[in-house]
């Protein structure tokens, strides 16, 4: 299986502030009544948008200035809660191609990587600076460079380092982010292992 080699993501950003943004928030459970992931994009942050409106505020994803953003920026422990892949699927289908946050919940991180969405960690200060920058210039083009672990913004003097674990970075850069091909390669070894584990070999 040959996949795109993801070394760089460039696009406009949108900042969704807050820590512990859980996967129920990203895609409420009632939208998971589906047997395919198609069409999930329009439900990303569905309830959060309504809640912001009710409180007399505008959710960042409803703010026309950030239409077409492909880089999502948020706080710490992003994607906690349910293991639903519907969450990164919804974000991907909405159009996001990279996520910058202070930290990520583990299952969400893995699910996103498998879909080819780099999730990179940046310091709180750098995130706040970047958020302030796009608030001022929503059209700013943000570039995540996985070869150098750096975020830069075109025409503006912004440079920040991010971190991403090697087990996600290498496969993204080599076009092997979906592990199924590697796993299938090991099938002979799998059978050999099954044969020697008592609870699996017993019939």
């Amino acid at each position: 299986m040959s996949l795109e080699k993801i070394t760089q993501v460039t696009g406009r950003g949108v900042y969704v502030p807050g820590d512990d943004i859980d996967t129920d928030r990203i895609i409420p459970a009632r939208f998971m009544k589906c047997v395919t992931f198609d069409g999930l994009g329009e439900f990303a942050f569905a309830d959060a948008k309504v809640a912001e409106k009710a409180a007399g505020r505008v959710h960042a994803l409803d703010d026309a200035r950030f239409n077409g953003a492909t880089v999502l920026i948020s706080g710490s422990n992003f994607g906690c809660g349910s293991s639903r892949e519907h969450a990164p699927q919804a974000l991907y289908r909405y159009g996001f191609r990279a996520i910058i946050a202070e930290s990520f919940a583990e299952i969400f991180f893995g699910n996103s990587t498998t879909l080819g969405i780099p999730c990179v960690k940046m310091s709180k200060q750098d995130i706040e600076d970047l958020a302030a920058l796009i608030e001022k210039t929503p059209t700013a083009q943000i570039t995540l460079d996985l070869t150098e672990n750096k975020v830069t913004v075109d025409d503006v003097d912004f440079r920040a380092e991010f971190s991403i674990p090697g087990h996600a970075r290498e496969p993204l850069m080599n076009g092997r982010w979906d592990s199924i091909a590697d796993l299938v390669d090991g099938l002979e070894d799998v059978k050999a292992r099954v044969a020697v584990i008592p609870y699996l070999s017993a019939k």
Partner: peptide
Amino acid sequence: GIGTSQVRDVLATQT
């Protein structure tokens, strides 16, 4: 706990 792509992986490869 795993995501759906991993459910696929486990179904197809048990790993």
